[in-house]
């Protein structure tokens, strides 16, 4: 279903936002992905994915506190919405369904 469509990167970001519940702002998300997935993420890619998903309604956000290190600028914390949850569910389910449809023979890698 098109409504729930998520790209691979979007899915990772969305899941990470969930993992970081309450602490999910730009820098934190980037570090979390770097740590868990061992993959480098550019600020641009991350931010555009976040805003895109926000406009789709998978995320919402609110401003948080500002620190001196941020030059007086506030953080924006992201949260998964109900729709975002549904999208994640839908994505996982469709993957599982596909997994289950694979006949066992397909995984028998004998030397032939």
């Amino acid at each position: 279903m098109k409504k729930y469509q998520l790209g691979e990167f979007e899915e990772i970001v969305l899941l990470t936002v969930g993992v970081l519940y309450g602490e999910a702002y730009g820098v934190a998300i980037k570090e979390e992905i770097a740590k868990r997935q061992n993959r480098k993420v550019s600020v641009g890619a991350l931010q555009s994915a976040l805003r895109r998903m926000e406009s789709k309604g998978f995320l919402n956000s609110e401003f948080g506190e500002s620190t001196k290190m941020r030059g007086g600028k506030r953080k924006r914390y992201f949260k998964i919405t109900a729709l975002g949850k549904k999208a994640l569910d839908y994505n996982m389910q469709s993957r599982v369904e596909l997994w289950n449809q694979i006949p066992d023979v397909a995984f028998e890698f004998k030397l032939c």
Binding site: Y25, G26, V43, R51, R70, G71, K73, R74, R76
Partner: peptide, 15 residues
Amino acid sequence: DFQEDIKGDLEEYYA
């Protein structure tokens, strides 16, 4: 709308 927090993030990375 996006400027403040992203700039903040950038500052953080910079620091």
